[in-house]
Simulated assay, not measured.
Amino acid sequence: MKKFINLFLAVILMVILLLCTLLTLSVYLKWPMMVSGYSSLFATQFNSRFILLALVLCITAFLFFKKQDTGRKIWKFNLILGILFLAGQLIFMLIMLRTASKYDAEISLIPSLKGLEKPVKPTETHHYLTIYGEKQLFDVYRPKNPSGKPTIPVVLVHGGAFIEGKRDQLGYAANWFTQRGYTSFGIEYPLAKKDRQTYESAVNSIVTCMSYIRKHAQEFNIDPSKMILVGGSAGGSLVMQADLGLRDGFAHSYDGSQVAPPAAVIALYPPVSLSDLYQKLREGKTVDLYDPMNKYLGGSPVQFPARFKQLNLIDHLSGGISPTLILTGEIDHVVNVEAIRDFVNKSKEMKLPVSYMEVPYGEHVYDGNPNSIAGQMTWAEIRHFLKRNRLTAE
Protein backbone atom coordinates (compact mmCIF):
# COMPACT_ATOMS: atom_id res chain seq x y z
CA MET A 1 0.00 0.00 0.00
CA LYS A 2 2.83 2.37 0.89
CA LYS A 3 4.54 1.68 -2.44
CA PHE A 4 1.30 2.32 -4.31
CA ILE A 5 0.80 5.68 -2.56
CA ASN A 6 4.41 6.62 -3.31
CA LEU A 7 3.99 5.83 -7.01
CA PHE A 8 0.64 7.61 -7.10
CA LEU A 9 2.17 10.77 -5.62
CA ALA A 10 5.12 10.54 -8.00
CA VAL A 11 2.84 10.34 -11.04
CA ILE A 12 0.59 13.16 -9.83
CA LEU A 13 3.60 15.41 -9.25
CA MET A 14 5.01 14.43 -12.64
CA VAL A 15 1.80 15.52 -14.37
CA ILE A 16 1.81 18.85 -12.50
CA LEU A 17 5.48 19.52 -13.22
CA LEU A 18 5.20 18.47 -16.84
CA LEU A 19 2.27 20.86 -17.32
CA CYS A 20 4.07 23.74 -15.55
CA THR A 21 7.26 23.15 -17.53
CA LEU A 22 5.51 22.96 -20.90
CA LEU A 23 3.48 26.09 -20.17
CA THR A 24 6.65 27.95 -19.17
CA LEU A 25 8.32 26.77 -22.37
CA SER A 26 5.37 28.06 -24.42
CA VAL A 27 6.04 31.55 -23.01
CA TYR A 28 9.51 31.62 -24.56
CA LEU A 29 8.41 29.93 -27.79
CA LYS A 30 5.45 32.36 -28.06
CA TRP A 31 3.51 29.40 -29.41
CA PRO A 32 0.85 28.16 -29.72
CA MET A 33 -0.98 31.49 -29.64
CA MET A 34 -3.67 30.88 -27.02
CA VAL A 35 -1.52 28.70 -24.76
CA SER A 36 1.45 31.07 -24.83
CA GLY A 37 -0.89 34.00 -24.31
CA TYR A 38 -2.43 32.63 -21.14
CA SER A 39 0.93 31.32 -19.94
CA SER A 40 2.51 34.75 -20.40
CA LEU A 41 -0.44 36.43 -18.71
CA PHE A 42 -0.08 34.28 -15.59
CA ALA A 43 3.72 34.53 -15.64
CA THR A 44 3.71 38.35 -15.69
CA GLN A 45 1.13 38.53 -12.92
CA PHE A 46 2.33 35.71 -10.64
CA ASN A 47 5.97 35.06 -11.52
CA SER A 48 7.17 35.44 -7.92
CA ARG A 49 4.60 32.93 -6.70
CA PHE A 50 5.58 30.48 -9.44
CA ILE A 51 9.19 30.66 -8.27
CA LEU A 52 8.12 29.73 -4.75
CA LEU A 53 5.94 26.94 -6.11
CA ALA A 54 8.83 25.62 -8.20
CA LEU A 55 11.11 25.65 -5.16
CA VAL A 56 8.60 23.69 -3.09
CA LEU A 57 8.12 21.13 -5.86
CA CYS A 58 11.88 20.78 -6.38
CA ILE A 59 12.49 20.20 -2.67
CA THR A 60 9.62 17.70 -2.54
CA ALA A 61 10.97 15.77 -5.53
CA PHE A 62 14.51 15.79 -4.10
CA LEU A 63 13.44 14.51 -0.66
CA PHE A 64 11.38 11.68 -2.12
CA PHE A 65 14.19 10.80 -4.53
CA LYS A 66 16.67 10.54 -1.65
CA LYS A 67 14.44 8.67 0.79
CA GLN A 68 12.29 6.38 -1.33
CA ASP A 69 13.29 3.16 -3.03
CA THR A 70 10.08 2.90 -5.02
CA GLY A 71 9.73 4.98 -8.18
CA ARG A 72 13.19 6.56 -7.95
CA LYS A 73 13.32 7.10 -11.72
CA ILE A 74 10.03 8.97 -11.66
CA TRP A 75 11.17 11.10 -8.72
CA LYS A 76 14.42 11.83 -10.54
CA PHE A 77 12.45 12.86 -13.61
CA ASN A 78 10.29 15.06 -11.37
CA LEU A 79 13.39 16.70 -9.95
CA ILE A 80 14.66 17.48 -13.45
CA LEU A 81 11.27 18.92 -14.44
CA GLY A 82 11.19 20.98 -11.23
CA ILE A 83 14.62 22.43 -11.96
CA LEU A 84 13.55 23.30 -15.54
CA PHE A 85 10.35 24.93 -14.25
CA LEU A 86 12.31 26.90 -11.65
CA ALA A 87 14.96 27.94 -14.17
CA GLY A 88 12.31 29.13 -16.62
CA GLN A 89 10.60 31.27 -14.01
CA LEU A 90 13.89 32.67 -12.68
CA ILE A 91 14.94 33.67 -16.19
CA PHE A 92 11.54 35.31 -16.65
CA MET A 93 12.06 37.30 -13.45
CA LEU A 94 15.54 38.39 -14.59
CA ILE A 95 14.08 39.59 -17.88
CA MET A 96 11.44 41.60 -16.01
CA LEU A 97 14.05 43.07 -13.64
CA ARG A 98 16.32 44.00 -16.54
CA THR A 99 13.40 45.73 -18.26
CA ALA A 100 12.53 47.53 -15.02
CA SER A 101 16.12 48.75 -14.83
CA LYS A 102 15.90 50.01 -18.42
CA TYR A 103 12.92 52.17 -17.45
CA ASP A 104 14.47 53.19 -14.12
CA ALA A 105 11.72 51.49 -12.13
CA GLU A 106 12.37 50.59 -8.51
CA ILE A 107 11.07 47.07 -7.86
CA SER A 108 10.37 45.36 -4.55
CA LEU A 109 10.05 41.56 -4.61
CA ILE A 110 8.03 41.20 -1.41
CA PRO A 111 4.94 43.07 -2.74
CA SER A 112 5.13 40.96 -5.91
CA LEU A 113 3.95 37.99 -3.83
CA LYS A 114 0.71 39.80 -3.01
CA GLY A 115 -2.56 39.62 -4.88
CA LEU A 116 -4.93 42.39 -5.89
CA GLU A 117 -5.77 45.14 -3.43
CA LYS A 118 -9.39 45.77 -2.51
CA PRO A 119 -10.66 48.61 -4.73
CA VAL A 120 -11.43 51.88 -3.00
CA LYS A 121 -15.10 52.86 -2.90
CA PRO A 122 -16.29 56.02 -4.66
CA THR A 123 -17.39 58.95 -2.57
CA GLU A 124 -20.26 59.91 -4.87
CA THR A 125 -21.89 59.21 -8.25
CA HIS A 126 -23.10 61.71 -10.86
CA HIS A 127 -25.24 61.58 -14.01
CA TYR A 128 -23.64 63.46 -16.91
CA LEU A 129 -25.56 62.37 -20.02
CA THR A 130 -28.60 60.46 -21.26
CA ILE A 131 -28.14 58.75 -24.62
CA TYR A 132 -30.02 55.88 -26.27
CA GLY A 133 -32.47 56.28 -23.39
CA GLU A 134 -29.76 55.29 -20.92
CA LYS A 135 -28.24 57.38 -18.15
CA GLN A 136 -24.44 57.61 -18.29
CA LEU A 137 -22.88 57.93 -14.83
CA PHE A 138 -19.48 58.49 -13.31
CA ASP A 139 -18.08 57.77 -9.86
CA VAL A 140 -15.89 60.23 -7.97
CA TYR A 141 -12.91 59.07 -5.91
CA ARG A 142 -11.64 61.94 -3.81
CA PRO A 143 -8.11 61.98 -2.33
CA LYS A 144 -7.66 60.22 0.99
CA ASN A 145 -5.83 63.15 2.55
CA PRO A 146 -7.11 66.30 0.84
CA SER A 147 -5.01 69.41 1.28
CA GLY A 148 -7.77 71.83 0.41
CA LYS A 149 -6.00 72.96 -2.75
CA PRO A 150 -7.47 72.15 -6.18
CA THR A 151 -6.40 68.64 -7.18
CA ILE A 152 -5.44 67.13 -10.52
CA PRO A 153 -8.43 65.30 -12.11
CA VAL A 154 -7.94 61.83 -13.59
CA VAL A 155 -10.66 60.42 -15.85
CA LEU A 156 -10.60 56.60 -15.87
CA VAL A 157 -12.11 54.90 -18.94
CA HIS A 158 -12.72 51.16 -18.74
CA GLY A 159 -12.10 48.58 -21.45
CA GLY A 160 -14.24 45.68 -22.62
CA ALA A 161 -13.92 45.57 -26.43
CA PHE A 162 -16.37 48.52 -26.70
CA ILE A 163 -19.28 46.16 -25.86
CA GLU A 164 -18.94 45.46 -22.12
CA GLY A 165 -17.30 46.67 -18.93
CA LYS A 166 -18.25 48.83 -15.95
CA ARG A 167 -17.19 52.21 -14.66
CA ASP A 168 -15.63 50.69 -11.52
CA GLN A 169 -13.44 48.33 -13.56
CA LEU A 170 -10.30 50.41 -12.95
CA GLY A 171 -10.64 50.33 -9.18
CA TYR A 172 -6.96 49.55 -8.68
CA ALA A 173 -6.08 52.65 -10.71
CA ALA A 174 -8.41 54.73 -8.54
CA ASN A 175 -6.54 53.34 -5.52
CA TRP A 176 -3.19 54.42 -6.92
CA PHE A 177 -4.28 57.94 -7.86
CA THR A 178 -6.31 58.75 -4.75
CA GLN A 179 -3.44 57.59 -2.53
CA ARG A 180 -1.28 60.20 -4.26
CA GLY A 181 -3.64 63.15 -3.99
CA TYR A 182 -5.48 63.02 -7.33
CA THR A 183 -9.24 63.14 -7.74
CA SER A 184 -10.34 60.25 -9.96
CA PHE A 185 -13.50 59.88 -12.04
CA GLY A 186 -14.53 56.39 -13.13
CA ILE A 187 -16.83 56.96 -16.06
CA GLU A 188 -19.15 54.89 -18.20
CA TYR A 189 -20.04 55.40 -21.86
CA PRO A 190 -22.59 53.84 -24.24
CA LEU A 191 -21.64 50.27 -25.15
CA ALA A 192 -22.05 48.94 -28.66
CA LYS A 193 -24.84 46.51 -29.49
CA LYS A 194 -26.01 44.73 -32.60
CA ASP A 195 -28.54 47.48 -33.33
CA ARG A 196 -26.32 50.45 -32.43
CA GLN A 197 -22.77 51.23 -33.45
CA THR A 198 -21.01 53.50 -30.96
CA TYR A 199 -17.83 54.38 -32.87
CA GLU A 200 -18.90 58.05 -32.61
CA SER A 201 -21.12 58.18 -29.52
CA ALA A 202 -18.62 56.46 -27.20
CA VAL A 203 -15.84 59.01 -27.70
CA ASN A 204 -18.31 61.91 -27.82
CA SER A 205 -19.73 60.78 -24.49
CA ILE A 206 -16.26 60.82 -22.96
CA VAL A 207 -15.72 64.35 -24.26
CA THR A 208 -19.12 65.31 -22.82
CA CYS A 209 -18.05 63.92 -19.46
CA MET A 210 -14.82 65.94 -19.65
CA SER A 211 -16.95 69.03 -20.24
CA TYR A 212 -19.24 68.22 -17.30
CA ILE A 213 -16.35 67.69 -14.91
CA ARG A 214 -14.69 70.93 -15.98
CA LYS A 215 -17.92 72.89 -15.56
CA HIS A 216 -18.18 71.56 -12.00
CA ALA A 217 -14.49 72.05 -11.21
CA GLN A 218 -15.18 74.06 -8.09
CA GLU A 219 -17.58 71.44 -6.75
CA PHE A 220 -14.99 68.69 -7.29
CA ASN A 221 -12.12 70.93 -6.13
CA ILE A 222 -10.02 70.24 -9.23
CA ASP A 223 -7.75 72.15 -11.58
CA PRO A 224 -9.55 71.63 -14.94
CA SER A 225 -6.47 72.67 -16.93
CA LYS A 226 -4.59 69.58 -15.71
CA MET A 227 -7.08 66.87 -16.65
CA ILE A 228 -5.51 63.46 -17.34
CA LEU A 229 -7.25 60.73 -19.34
CA VAL A 230 -6.42 57.11 -18.46
CA GLY A 231 -7.79 54.05 -20.23
CA GLY A 232 -7.04 50.40 -20.82
CA SER A 233 -7.69 48.33 -23.96
CA ALA A 234 -10.84 49.78 -25.62
CA GLY A 235 -10.67 52.51 -22.98
CA GLY A 236 -7.09 53.21 -24.06
CA SER A 237 -8.26 53.69 -27.62
CA LEU A 238 -11.10 55.95 -26.48
CA VAL A 239 -8.90 58.30 -24.43
CA MET A 240 -6.58 58.65 -27.41
CA GLN A 241 -9.58 59.21 -29.68
CA ALA A 242 -10.82 61.92 -27.33
CA ASP A 243 -7.51 63.77 -27.44
CA LEU A 244 -6.86 63.41 -31.17
CA GLY A 245 -10.55 63.86 -32.01
CA LEU A 246 -10.77 67.19 -30.19
CA ARG A 247 -7.72 68.37 -32.11
CA ASP A 248 -8.75 66.98 -35.51
CA GLY A 249 -12.47 67.70 -35.28
CA PHE A 250 -14.04 64.23 -35.21
CA ALA A 251 -14.95 64.32 -31.50
CA HIS A 252 -17.19 66.80 -29.73
CA SER A 253 -19.30 67.30 -26.60
CA TYR A 254 -23.04 66.72 -26.77
CA ASP A 255 -23.62 69.85 -24.68
CA GLY A 256 -22.21 72.03 -27.45
CA SER A 257 -19.25 73.26 -25.41
CA GLN A 258 -15.81 73.83 -26.84
CA VAL A 259 -13.69 71.30 -24.93
CA ALA A 260 -9.94 71.69 -24.65
CA PRO A 261 -7.77 68.58 -25.12
CA PRO A 262 -6.52 66.89 -21.94
CA ALA A 263 -3.24 67.81 -20.28
CA ALA A 264 -2.01 64.22 -20.72
CA VAL A 265 -3.15 60.78 -21.85
CA ILE A 266 -2.18 57.36 -20.47
CA ALA A 267 -3.24 54.45 -22.67
CA LEU A 268 -2.64 50.83 -21.73
CA TYR A 269 -2.59 48.31 -24.61
CA PRO A 270 -4.85 50.45 -26.85
CA PRO A 271 -6.04 49.34 -30.30
CA VAL A 272 -4.78 52.33 -32.30
CA SER A 273 -5.82 51.02 -35.72
CA LEU A 274 -8.94 48.90 -36.04
CA SER A 275 -8.36 48.34 -39.76
CA ASP A 276 -4.95 46.81 -39.04
CA LEU A 277 -6.49 44.82 -36.20
CA TYR A 278 -9.21 43.54 -38.54
CA GLN A 279 -6.52 42.33 -40.94
CA LYS A 280 -4.70 40.53 -38.12
CA LEU A 281 -8.01 38.98 -37.17
CA ARG A 282 -8.49 37.65 -40.70
CA GLU A 283 -4.97 36.20 -40.58
CA GLY A 284 -5.78 34.36 -37.35
CA LYS A 285 -3.15 36.27 -35.37
CA THR A 286 -5.50 37.63 -32.70
CA VAL A 287 -8.33 36.25 -30.60
CA ASP A 288 -11.79 36.26 -32.18
CA LEU A 289 -12.98 39.87 -32.15
CA TYR A 290 -15.47 39.79 -35.01
CA ASP A 291 -18.50 40.25 -32.75
CA PRO A 292 -17.29 43.36 -30.85
CA MET A 293 -15.87 44.96 -33.99
CA ASN A 294 -19.07 44.37 -35.94
CA LYS A 295 -21.12 45.83 -33.09
CA TYR A 296 -18.83 48.83 -32.61
CA LEU A 297 -18.33 49.68 -36.29
CA GLY A 298 -21.13 47.85 -38.08
CA GLY A 299 -19.02 45.61 -40.27
CA SER A 300 -15.70 45.29 -42.07
CA PRO A 301 -13.28 47.91 -43.48
CA VAL A 302 -14.59 47.08 -46.96
CA GLN A 303 -18.15 47.88 -45.90
CA PHE A 304 -17.32 51.00 -43.85
CA PRO A 305 -13.93 52.39 -44.92
CA ALA A 306 -14.62 55.88 -43.54
CA ARG A 307 -15.44 54.56 -40.07
CA PHE A 308 -12.28 52.49 -39.90
CA LYS A 309 -10.20 55.37 -41.26
CA GLN A 310 -11.49 57.65 -38.50
CA LEU A 311 -10.19 55.14 -35.95
CA ASN A 312 -6.80 54.74 -37.62
CA LEU A 313 -5.27 57.12 -35.10
CA ILE A 314 -1.92 57.49 -36.85
CA ASP A 315 -3.73 59.51 -39.54
CA HIS A 316 -4.71 62.18 -37.00
CA LEU A 317 -1.25 63.10 -35.71
CA SER A 318 -0.93 66.17 -37.93
CA GLY A 319 -3.15 68.09 -35.51
CA GLY A 320 -0.78 67.38 -32.64
CA ILE A 321 -1.21 65.29 -29.54
CA SER A 322 -1.19 65.80 -25.78
CA PRO A 323 1.71 64.25 -23.86
CA THR A 324 0.85 60.57 -24.17
CA LEU A 325 2.16 57.44 -22.52
CA ILE A 326 1.41 54.12 -24.21
CA LEU A 327 2.08 50.86 -22.38
CA THR A 328 1.64 47.43 -23.88
CA GLY A 329 2.87 43.86 -23.87
CA GLU A 330 5.15 42.42 -26.50
CA ILE A 331 2.88 39.53 -27.55
CA ASP A 332 -0.56 41.07 -27.00
CA HIS A 333 -3.02 38.81 -28.88
CA VAL A 334 -5.95 41.18 -28.48
CA VAL A 335 -4.57 44.40 -29.97
CA ASN A 336 -2.13 44.86 -32.83
CA VAL A 337 1.25 45.64 -31.25
CA GLU A 338 2.81 46.36 -34.67
CA ALA A 339 0.29 49.16 -35.21
CA ILE A 340 1.16 50.62 -31.80
CA ARG A 341 4.86 50.56 -32.69
CA ASP A 342 4.12 52.30 -36.01
CA PHE A 343 2.13 54.96 -34.15
CA VAL A 344 4.97 55.54 -31.68
CA ASN A 345 7.62 55.65 -34.42
CA LYS A 346 5.56 58.11 -36.49
CA SER A 347 5.09 60.30 -33.40
CA LYS A 348 8.84 60.33 -32.79
CA GLU A 349 9.50 61.26 -36.43
CA MET A 350 7.09 64.17 -35.98
CA LYS A 351 8.73 65.05 -32.64
CA LEU A 352 5.45 64.64 -30.77
CA PRO A 353 5.38 64.02 -26.99
CA VAL A 354 4.65 60.28 -27.05
CA SER A 355 6.36 57.91 -24.58
CA TYR A 356 6.26 54.14 -24.89
CA MET A 357 6.94 51.10 -22.73
CA GLU A 358 6.72 47.53 -24.02
CA VAL A 359 6.83 44.65 -21.54
CA PRO A 360 8.65 41.52 -22.78
CA TYR A 361 6.32 38.52 -23.20
CA GLY A 362 3.48 40.71 -21.97
CA GLU A 363 -0.06 39.65 -22.94
CA HIS A 364 -3.20 41.76 -22.88
CA VAL A 365 -3.88 43.07 -19.36
CA TYR A 366 -0.37 41.95 -18.33
CA ASP A 367 -0.65 44.41 -15.41
CA GLY A 368 -3.76 42.74 -13.98
CA ASN A 369 -1.83 42.28 -10.73
CA PRO A 370 -0.40 45.76 -10.01
CA ASN A 371 1.85 44.28 -7.30
CA SER A 372 3.67 42.02 -9.76
CA ILE A 373 7.02 43.08 -11.18
CA ALA A 374 5.33 43.99 -14.47
CA GLY A 375 2.64 45.89 -12.56
CA GLN A 376 5.16 47.78 -10.44
CA MET A 377 7.11 48.58 -13.59
CA THR A 378 3.98 49.96 -15.25
CA TRP A 379 3.04 52.23 -12.36
CA ALA A 380 6.62 53.40 -11.95
CA GLU A 381 6.63 54.46 -15.61
CA ILE A 382 3.30 56.23 -15.12
CA ARG A 383 4.80 58.07 -12.15
CA HIS A 384 7.86 59.07 -14.22
CA PHE A 385 5.59 60.26 -17.04
CA LEU A 386 3.48 62.41 -14.74
CA LYS A 387 6.57 63.87 -13.13
CA ARG A 388 8.11 64.73 -16.50
CA ASN A 389 4.94 66.58 -17.44
CA ARG A 390 4.60 68.37 -14.08
CA LEU A 391 1.35 66.61 -13.25
CA THR A 392 2.28 65.16 -9.88
CA ALA A 393 -0.01 65.67 -6.91
CA GLU A 394 2.39 64.28 -4.30
Rank of each mutant, 00 (worst) to 15 (best):
K76D: 12
P190F: 12
V335K: 09
V15W: 10
Q136H: 06
Y103Q: 00
E349D: 14
T324C: 06
T24F: 09
A242E: 01
R72L: 10
F64P: 00
V239Q: 03
A87W: 10
H126M: 05
E219I: 12
K118P: 00
I12R: 02
D195V: 06
L246D: 01
Y290K: 14
I213K: 06
V344H: 01
G362T: 06
I373G: 04
A380L: 03
P270F: 00
D276F: 12
T392C: 13
E134T: 13
R282I: 14
I187H: 10
A202S: 05
V359L: 08
F138L: 09
L156Q: 01
N47G: 04
T286F: 14
K3A: 13
E124P: 01
A264M: 08
M93T: 15
N6T: 13
F77D: 01
K73T: 09
Y361R: 07
L17E: 10
G159T: 00
G115R: 07
A105F: 00
H127M: 10
V140N: 03
D276S: 12
L313M: 13
F46V: 07
P323H: 11
E338I: 08
G231E: 09
T286R: 12
I382Q: 02
I12W: 07
I74C: 04
A267Y: 01
Y128N: 10
L79Y: 04
L327K: 00
L55Y: 08
Q218R: 12
T130M: 14
S40C: 08
E164F: 03
G71R: 03
M33Q: 11
S112I: 07
I373Y: 04
L41T: 01
D104H: 10
S101N: 15
A393M: 03
E188P: 07
Q179R: 11
D367R: 02
K67R: 13
L22N: 09
P32Y: 04
G368M: 09
F138D: 01
E188S: 11
A87R: 05
H384K: 05
A242M: 02
D367N: 06
V35Q: 04
K144H: 10
L17H: 07
G299Y: 04
A264K: 06
